[in-house]
């Protein structure tokens, strides 16, 4: 665990930016956290190719720090949404999703008020064209108005993934589901 004030991230194979709230989500979700001491080294390491996973608030921090394109806005329904949503794994050529089947339907919980993914059309076309949309909300399941049903995206080098739903909350039967487990198995296999 690294404290936000720490200026150096230890030498690790995977950096995870978890969900939650940081700095009270003041100004914009993730805006302050993106400028924290710890993030400077995260950005540096991400640019050098270290694998980075940002979940929920972590995804917001990754877009605010420009490691991922686009932005996460207020949910279209203006409500904090906390429930399981159906997703489709749309890209398996990544260190995060290699153990999933292409097109596999999974259910991950979402728990956010600002998960509405937005980017200009050119960026969205590019993300789709380059196979960087990794998770999409299944038809009729989009909980927040995200553009083109996008739930998770990769950076250009494919070592940084950000997603709004929570795979870590469904990786053991005790938690009520195991659909997220394959992401961590993918990472173990790919980075091991």
């Amino acid at each position: 665990m690294v404290w936000h004030a720490d200026s150096e991230i230890p030498d690790v194979d995977l950096i995870v930016l978890p969900g939650g709230f940081a700095y009270g989500d003041y100004l914009r979700s993730g805006a302050m956290a993106a400028l924290s001491n710890a993030m400077r080294d995260v950005i540096d390491k991400a640019q050098k190719g270290v694998t980075v996973l940002g979940i929920c608030n972590g995804f917001q921090v990754l877009t605010e720090s420009r490691l991922l394109p686009g932005a996460l806005m207020r949910n279209a329904g203006l409500k904090f949404t906390c429930r399981g949503v159906g997703l489709e794994v749309t890209e398996t050529q990544s260190v995060f999703t290699r153990k999933y089947d292409s097109g596999q339907r999974v259910t991950f919980p979402v728990a956010n008020g600002e998960g509405n993914y937005t980017a200009d059309d050119e960026t969205l076309d590019r993300l789709e064209g380059e196979g960087r949309v990794v998770f999409r909300y299944a038809a009729g399941e989009n909980p927040n108005g995200s553009a083109r049903n996008i739930a998770g995206i990769l950076n250009e080098k494919r070592n940084v993934l950000g997603l709004m739903p929570h795979p870590e909350r469904v990786c053991d039967p005790l938690l009520g589901g195991t659909d997220g487990r394959a992401m961590f198995e993918s990472l173990l296999e790919g980075l091991g």
């Binding site: 914009r28 805006a31 877009t63 605010e64 686009g70 806005m73 937005t118």
Partner: peptide, 8 residues
């Protein structure tokens, strides 16, 4: 740098 997110 901070006050606006110029993406949106």
């Amino acid at each position: 740098k901070l006050l606006a997110n110029t993406v949106i």
